[in-house]
Design a protein around this nucleic acid. Sequence first.
RNA 1: GCGCUUGUAGCUCAGUGGAUAGAGCGUUCCCCUCCGAAGGGAAAGGCCGUGCGUUCGAUUCGCACCAGGCGCACCA
Length: 548
Amino acid sequence: MLMLMREKIKQIIQTAMGPASAEFNFDLTYPDAKFGDYATNAALVWAKLSKQKPQDVAKNLIEKMDKAMFETVEIAGPGFINFRLKNNELLTQPSALNPQRSEKILLEYFQPNIAKPLHIGHLETAVIGDAIKRMLLFVGEKVESDTHMGDWGTQFGFLILAVKKFGKVNEKIYAQLNQEAEKDPSIHESAKQEFVKLEQGDQENRKIWQDLVEDSVKQFLQINQLMDILPFDHHWPESFYEDKMPGVLTELESKDILQTGERGARIVNLEQQKLGIAVIVKSDGGTTYLLRDLATFIFAQKEGFKKHLYVVDNRQSHHYKQLFAILHRMEKIEEGEGAHIDYGFVSFKGEALSTRKGNMILALDVIAQAEEKVAQVIAEKNPDLKDKQGVIKAVTKGALKYFILKHNRHSDIEFSWEEVLDFEGNSGPYLQYAYARLSSILKKSQITNPKFQINPKSQISNTERELLFKLSILSEIVDDTLADYLPNILANYLYNLAGLINKFYHESHILSEKDQTVKNFRLALIAKAKNTLGKGLELLGIQALEEM
RNA sequence: GCGCUUGUAGCUCAGUGGAUAGAGCGUUCCCCUCCGAAGGGAAAGGCCGUGCGUUCGAUUCGCACCAGGCGCACCA
């Protein structure tokens, strides 16, 4: 059974505390490097409960503790216990854990809408979802991804109406028609009618719809290549659930959950949970997104998915609360089996981006501008680079993905061209650059697989020691990242790691080092750093480059 | 009105019940006759929105208020 180092240390602490340890929680954190590798507040917590002095409790704990793994165990500050591991222990952290759970997880992300071009918001869901998928796979979970294309709903009434009126539809026509509808309610009404006809199987409308969908699917699947998104395991668009909705309605009826609301709409009353009214079927008989999401969840459950995760922006959190509340009432869901992985949407110059306002930042525009800037930088810094095109693409994707992933997904992002196109400092290319320099040294050393020889007599600098520890905790960081599905935890870690690597690179000379033992140790450190940084980048979906 | 969410350096953002609150950008400096300067180092810059409470300890938890954003029955 593989175990994270911090779990081992927690067990050691618990063992030292004896049966009393079951009664309370304590933390094990990463303190400032000068204090140690790990720190615990266990003595402080215990002292509080037992009304003893923290220092005494700590002293007692340390005495009883199995200290074999540690270089030092010290009391510090108000009663923290700081642990410093023996150097050899730093090489033993498993790169992956044994999977604890074996249920299938459905991870839904990337929900493009027909007749709307891909924009920055689509990049967010795709990039966040992809990173989460990569990490879940890394820890051994059975996760499958699904795109949920918006190919159904009243909007299709508008699209069909547009095709009938103008013979075709594009973004402009669609927007124009929507604007007209705001002034003229009869247009809105006819659009709704067209969708009802589509749902009832009208042949002409079906044909128009199919053509629209086929076109769009081709366009959307560019995302896999465009942004290096792992292939999707499923494409279950909204229309996929068309024939699964009646069954859900029947079940809602039989469980007496459904009520008739205003104008004959079929609703679920969630006022008690302070979630308002959920409309399941509209008064014109058309289905709602909510009904399709119910059908989606229930379908996935029948397919054996125990957990259903949705990577969708935070404006829809009310919707997902309603969804989970209804599923709960249907007794289909238990705590933790459905989760809305929400993210803040992008604003630009303080204004929310929207297609309607016309300030939307399109995916292809961002990519094009970033590629242009990357090409400039390469022309300036590394004009003789081989495979320029490949590197330009990889650096561009790295910059965009990292820009998205470094933010705590809960916060809204203020988009700034300046920041997105800045490849210095806390950026994707900074990480890729650190990696490329490591590769370069290893290549020049001509030692392909250096072995660690930690000679107790040879000097290990503070930076080297700190780096060695940092390299040992990748799995713990992934574990933290997945606890709340916050990819920025991994992104921040990698940024700090790259900073340490750069500092080490700056302070310690490798190729010119005379002492063979020291040189070997440093080379091994470089190799391990390269592997770890490379692995971390891969988990974010960012390509590591040998040269750039 | 109700609900959710955010408020941390000039700007954009991390972060945490505790040991000196961090980074990038911007500003002012320093470092390529040594492995890639897309790099490293230094300085300046903070009542962590306000008030009250819980706590040995609050920027972190709770409540109230102020300010922004989002959502709240037939859009998805």
